[in-house]
């Protein structure tokens, strides 16, 4: 599904990703944890093609397609989806209009007709319900004045509607109350399937009680420094990252 090899990327001439490797097979859920500023969000932005992020070396392939050559919208059409850590507010553009434009664009890429306004509204309402957002949120400006938790649920709703192949969830759990955490987790779990994969970026082991990962990786200083199964998250929860980074410094010395 996704293959990242030796990825080096910089922002404003500052090298952030320093040799990232990651292999994800269809149907797998990979959790990525790691200290603040390690480069987790940067990875999401580089994969989705945000302006200002320069790939210095390395390769990224999604189902055999070289992602790095594509515009952001083309990457989305290849099935990539990033749930933003900080979703963007767009006053003046209604959530519904935004969602319809997104869904239509992807349908068009697959050679399908636009959904009728009515059919789309029905799907959007269902998606709202799944993430426990009142349907009125469809009429509001995109994320405009949404609370932190509502923004996160709005991201998951987009994922439900767009049905991507690879979902990167960047701290979709932060700022959520316990009920909302379950809602988000249920949303994700309902989408798990043999041909869809997830990268779940989180700081909290608790999310992984709800979304069971196949692998847990620690990203620190721009690369994966340790990988393991779900038990690694428990270890990190108990001990933090200190022992890992010290161990690594020891290894390097």
């Amino acid at each position: 599904m996704l293959s990242i090899k030796n990825l080096h990327a910089s922002v404003e001439d500052k090298l952030i990703l320093k040799g990232l490797d990651l292999e994800i097979k269809p149907g797998e859920v990979h959790a990525i944890m790691g200290p603040n500023g390690a480069g987790k969000s940067t990875m999401g932005y580089v994969l989705s093609g945000k302006d200002g992020y320069t790939v210095e070396s390395g390769t990224v392939e999604l189902n055999g397609v070289n992602l790095l050559d594509l515009e952001p919208e083309e990457r989305a059409k290849e099935g990539l989806f990033l749930a933003f850590q900080y979703p963007v507010e767009i006053p003046g553009v209604s959530n519904l209009e935004f969602l319809k434009a997104s869904v239509d664009a992807q349908r068009k890429a697959r050679g399908e007709d636009d959904l009728s306004a009515k059919e789309f509204l029905k799907q959007a309402r269902e998606a709202c319900k799944k993430v426990d957002l009142p349907a009125e949120f469809l009429k509001r400006g995109v994320n405009e004045g949404f609370s932190g938790g509502e923004k996160k649920r709005n991201e998951i709703m987009q994922m439900l509607l767009l049905k991507p192949k690879l979902c990167i969830l960047d701290e979709s759990d932060s700022g959520l109350d316990i009920d909302a955490l379950k809602v988000v987790a249920d949303g994700v779990n309902s989408q798990r399937s043999p041909d869809r994969s997830f990268i779940v970026i989180t700081h909290y082991q608790r999310l992984l009680d709800y979304i069971k990962p196949d692998f847990v990786h620690v990203l620190a200083d721009g690369k994966i420094i340790k990988s393991g199964d779900a038990s690694l998250a428990l270890e990190l929860d108990a001990q933090g990252y200190g022992w890992l980074t010290e161990q690594r410094e020891g290894d390097e010395a």
Binding site: A76, V88, A101, S102
Partner: peptide, 8 residues
């Protein structure tokens, strides 16, 4: 970018 990342 947000819009583009959704395929627009």
């Amino acid at each position: 970018f947000y819009l583009q990342s959704r395929g627009v």
